[in-house]
Write a protein that binds this DNA or RNA. Structure first.
Lengths: 141, 141
DNA sequence: TCAATATACTACTATTTTAATAGTATTATA
DNA sequence: TATAATACTATTAAAATAGTAGTATATTGA
C-alpha cells in the first residue's frame, strides 16, 4: 500500500507547472532542476500526465509543458490514477473474474469501502490546494 | 497502492478462525483447505498475525490456532498493519529523513491526510463486521 | 520413551514491479 | 538547416512479492 515514486514525483512536477501557470510553457529540464529529479524518468511520467489530459506539450524549440487546465480543476485522483495505472487497491473491483471467491467474499465489501474512501479523499484535493499549501510554506521561511 | 496477497489472505484466514471462535483450536491445513490457499505461505503469514497478538498458537499434536481476542476486538488496521509491515503510504510519515524535501514539501500534507483517512477506515472495520457479512452472504445462497 | 502430528524457523527461488538509464526519432523554431 | 525541445522504445538493476522446501521444535497419547 505504498504510493509509487511515479505518483509522488508526478505530483511535484504538476505543482511546478502550477507555479508557472500564468507564464508560458516550461522546459522539463527546468522542472527537473527545481525538484532535483531525473530528466529521463520524468519524461516518461509526464507523457502519462499528457495522455490523461492533465498537461499539454509543445514540441520543438521553445516548446515545453504547461497545465492543460486550471490548478483548481485538477484533482489528485486524476494524477494518481494516471500514474498508478489504477486507483483500485484490489483487482476484483474492476475484474470480478480476478478472484474465484468473488461472489462469496465477505472481505471484498470492506476492501471496496476503503477503496471508495481513498478515491473520495483523492477527489477532494486539487492542485490548487497543494499550490496554496506550498505558498504558505514558502512565506513561513 | 495495491493491497498485498498477504493482507488479503491473512484476512480470509482470520475470518476462518472467527467462524470457529467458540470451538477449539483449528489446524492451519484445514484453513488452507477451506480457503484454497498455500499451506507454506499461510504458515508464514499466520506467524506475523501471532506476533501481532491477533491469533494464538498451540503447538504439538492436537494443536492449532485460534483468535487471541474476540472478533469485535480485532480491527482491520491490526491485520493490515501486521501483514503490510506498515500502514503508511509514504515513508516520510515515519522517517522525515527519508526525503530531503521534507520541510518544504506541500504534497506531503495531503498524502498524510489521505493516509489518516485510510487508517481511520481500517480502524472502523472489525473482524465481527466481516463475519456478519459472511453469514449474510451464506444465508442468501 | 517414542511415534505421530502439529507449529516454528530459515533459506532459497521465480516472477513481477519499480525505478530508473540510454539511445534514437520526431517536431518546431529562428 | 542547425538547434533545441518533446516522443518513443528498449534495456537494466534493484527491490518487493509470492511463493516453495526442508528442518527444527513442541506436545500429545499410547
Amino acid at each position: 500500500m505504498k504510493l509509487s515514486t511515479r505518483s509522488r514525483y508526478g505530483t511535484r512536477l504538476v505543482l511546478e507547472l502550477a507555479l508557472k501557470f500564468e507564464s508560458g510553457p516550461v522546459f522539463l529540464k527546468d522542472i527537473c532542476k527545481a525538484q532535483n529529479l531525473s530528466f529521463k524518468y520524468l519524461s516518461q511520467i509526464i507523457i502519462l500526465l499528457k495522455t490523461a489530459g492533465i498537461v499539454k506539450a509543445m514540441r520543438g524549440a521553445y516548446g515545453g509543458y504547461c497545465l492543460a487546465k486550471k490548478p483548481e480543476e485538477i484533482k489528485l485522483s486524476e494524477i494518481v490514477g494516471a500514474l498508478e495505472g489504477t486507483l483500485n487497491i484490489i483487482d476484483c473491483i474492476k475484474n470480478p473474474e480476478a478472484c474465484k471467491k468473488y461472489s462469496n467474499c465477505a472481505s471484498r465489501f470492506y476492501w471496496e469501502e476503503i477503496n471508495n474512501n481513498i478515491c473520495k479523499s483523492l477527489e477532494e484535493i486539487t492542485v490548487k490546494n497543494i499550490l496554496e499549501k506550498h505558498r504558505a510554506l514558502n512565506l513561513l521561511q
